[in-house]
Computed example of a mutant assay.
Amino acid sequence: MGRQGVLIGLMAALTESTLRMLANAAHPASLDMPNDGVGSDHDSLGLFQMRPSSGWGTVADLMDPTYQVRAFFGGPGGPNYPSPAGLLDIPGWQTADPGSAAQSVERSAFPDRYQDYQPVAEAIIAALTKTPSLGNQNAAPLDTVAETARVVFPLPSGTWVRSSGYGWRDDTMTGRRAFHAGTDYAAADGTPILAIADGVVSWAGPYGQYGQLIVIEHTVDGSRVASAYAHMWDSGVHVSAGERVTAGQHIGDVGASGKSQGAHLHFEIRPGGAFEPSVNAEVWLAEHGAEGVTAATSGQSACLAGPSR
């Protein structure tokens, strides 16, 4: 499933049950099975509030958290294939808005609820995930990342305009409120993307709605920080996992892969490493004296309502 699938599953279970295995008096037998509380939504059971009457499984099945997870993710190996459909049975789930993907499985009468739990789900993933390599077994050890010599802005001066900032916004593709974990810079297709600091590449390749993604681990002022660069084309990734890079090195080219409406760089800063929560990248760059940050600040006056994610 990858991180994107885990994120969607967590958002769904947090919304439906606050991550609890709920019994239901509509099925008295469930009250005698291991549970974290009693729900009351029709005949819904468990983490994802699945209903026996909708074909998700028997009461005994749905009071088993492992079964519920397998049913939610579905696919040819899932217990209900092909119906009810799980996440793997939903075409395009990898690049869909996570809340919309969760709704495609849950089919709730309140479809906008799932997106409210995305920040919580992100925090859970950060807390439970200890490896900074994004699961890539080919990455070099990241405990030897040397202190960077400099910090730079990720795009050449004069090539971009800021198109979307960090934080809550109306998603340009769904129209719904959603949390934007990075800063978007609209630029011409093929514009060079620069590593912001010396470091080691921990991910280079496709990653869900990010499209083609590069993640680099750095040491800045004695602390670990990860930078992420998203939406390049397949041909726009010029580094590989485990490769050491230097500040200002040309690592990729601007594109529009993944969840994107046009050519731009989606840029994130994650203090502590790749799985930690992101912060406002523009503020972080300014605080760390990034070369070119003056141009970044002046570029905010040219904000667009166009391509972003």
Rank of each mutant, 00 (worst) to 15 (best):
G5L: 10
A13K: 08
E16Q: 05
T18I: 05
R20W: 11
R20S: 15
A26Q: 12
H27T: 02
L31E: 01
N35K: 11
G37C: 13
V38I: 13
D43Y: 04
L47D: 03
R51A: 12
P52E: 03
P52N: 09
D61S: 06
P65H: 12
T66S: 15
Y67V: 15
R70Q: 15
R70N: 15
N80E: 08
P84H: 14
P84I: 13
A85C: 11
I90F: 11
D97E: 07
P98D: 14
G99I: 11
S100H: 08
Q103D: 13
D112C: 08
Y114V: 03
Q115P: 04
Y117E: 05
E122R: 06
E122H: 11
I125Q: 10
A127S: 05
L128Q: 14
T131S: 10
P132K: 02
P132Y: 05
E147M: 04
E147A: 09
S157E: 12
V161Q: 12
R162L: 14
S163K: 11
S164L: 07
W168M: 04
D170E: 05
T172V: 14
R176W: 15
R177M: 15
G182N: 05
G182L: 10
G182F: 12
D189F: 15
T191M: 11
V200G: 01
G205H: 08
G211W: 07
Q212F: 08
V215Q: 09
V220N: 00
G222Y: 02
S223L: 11
V225F: 04
A228S: 12
Y229A: 05
D234W: 06
H238A: 02
S240E: 04
A241E: 08
A247H: 06
H250N: 07
A256M: 10
A256V: 03
S257Q: 12
G262Y: 01
G262K: 07
G273N: 01
V279L: 03
H288M: 10
G292L: 02
T294D: 00
T294F: 04
S301F: 14
S301N: 04
C303F: 15
C303W: 07
